[in-house]
Amino acid sequence: MPHAAETVTLRRPGARPMLPLDIAGLTLAVDSRRLVDDLTLRLKGSGLTVIMGPNGAGKSLLLRLIHGLIRPTAGAISWGGVPMSAGLRVRQAMVFQRPVLLRRSVAANIDFVLGLRGAIGARAAAERRDRLLDRVGLLGHARQSARLLSGGEQQRLALARALAVEPEVLFLDEATASLDPASTQMIEEIVLAERGRGTKVIFVTHDIGQARRLADDVVFLHRGRLVEHRPARQFFDDPSSPPARAYLDGRIVL
């Protein structure tokens, strides 16, 4: 897939590194139901972390909590030793399961985000936008309405928009769950390329095959609790917990 090599590795010179991510005693309770339950976890370095687990395990909630979109009931989240805040969120981006695109053209969806991040000049912004669209294979659709793209194209646009903020941490919440294999593959390739650039990727999926393809390490959740966090190979070769083993075997985990 052709894409211009971007040479930015240290995207915010002078800023403290985002990692490690430290989660301590994280709990989210709604009506006394503990949807995320006393979760403690540390993610170090870069690489691609896959968060797995059956439906209702709390994967998407965990992602929203660590991205600061939901306030936890209890517990602490810090990035590089700094408590999560809106200021840190600027250095992160998230691709949601269902892309939420502006009711504008494909190009305008990217322009909107580039415009948020201050002045880089109209020409530089247009060049960056075209490069991003090219990267997700949508340059030819730049003038179309974003809402008329196919599901796969919409999600690729959402990914390009997330990359427009030059995130140091990229979250994907079952971003390929409803996409065809070709779109899924394209998104996986781009995400792996991002990881290669040093971006921390945190990828929620319940697709075991996808997790095998992508993961450097796996966080397995069950009923809001952390069950396992291990390097991918160890996890897939020899899951240590009964729920994870049952899940990988394709048995229903309740």
Binding site: L69, M94, F96, L102, L116
Partner: peptide, 24 residues
């Protein structure tokens, strides 16, 4: 309701969000 989470993820300032909502 549709845009809120995405806008918060992108740290869209309130004023910008107002105009984006009106435009869309």
């Amino acid at each position: 309701a549709e845009y809120d989470e995405q806008f918060r993820s992108l740290n869209v300032p309130r004023g910008t969000a107002v105009w984006a909502l009106i435009g869309d």
